[in-house]
Computed example of a mutant assay.
Amino acid sequence: MRADARKNYSHILSVARDVVTEHGIDASMRDIARRADVGLATLLRHFPTREALFEALLCTNLDSLTQKADELETSNSPGEALVAWFREWVTFAQSYRGVVTLMAAAHTNPASALYVSCAAVHSASARLLVRAQSEGTARADMNGDDLFALMTALGWAIDQPSFAPRADRLFHIIAGAILINQSSNEDAAPAGS
């Protein structure tokens, strides 16, 4: 990519990040182009679809998330690693309103621009789950698909304004359902949260 094209690409991504942070996944491609002071055709040349734009926006976050799973896998006990990574994922899911819906649709669609990134997240969570199951700290009757579905469900719930204030409590309830013998009193948020 030429230097001017790379600069344009970086500028569009920076503006897109701001617009998507403000408006979530429903941000208008026209609004992104307008605010980046480029034509819609220029935006579409770099990002031919909304998914391609989100893949570019999210790939750094998702790569970091997958790398974090690798670090936790070698540095923490299996149960702690699974819960810490799940917490990291929730933090990521809160970064862009609506991103979880995109990921849920993309994780089984190889034609999606987000498929590879979503598959990496799914694989990382499944690895951490299997490791915790091997140690006996996670339920044996669930698999990576179940865990990804629970993560997605929590991500969707905390994306809703009415549930967002309960994010920590919902996280602890789901983590308690995944782990065996987790002390619910130790980490649970107050009942009124």
Rank of each mutant, 00 (worst) to 15 (best):
R6S: 11
K7C: 00
Y9G: 04
L13S: 03
S14Y: 12
E22R: 14
I25C: 11
I25L: 02
D26E: 13
R35D: 15
A36R: 10
D37H: 10
L40C: 03
L40W: 01
T42I: 01
T42D: 00
L43A: 08
L43M: 11
R45L: 08
F47T: 06
E51C: 02
F54L: 08
F54N: 04
C59Q: 14
N61A: 12
D70A: 13
E71A: 10
T74C: 11
S75N: 10
A81V: 07
A81T: 06
V83A: 14
W89A: 10
T91W: 10
F92Q: 10
Q94T: 09
Q94W: 00
V99P: 04
V100S: 10
T101D: 11
M103A: 13
T108D: 15
Y115I: 03
S117N: 12
C118M: 15
A119Y: 04
H122C: 03
L128R: 02
L128V: 11
L129E: 09
R131Q: 13
A132C: 05
Q133P: 03
Q133A: 03
G136R: 09
G136P: 05
A138C: 08
M142L: 11
D145M: 01
D146R: 06
T152D: 01
I158Y: 02
F163A: 14
A164P: 05
P165T: 03
A167P: 00
D168V: 12
D168Y: 15
R169G: 05
F171I: 01
D187T: 14
G192S: 13
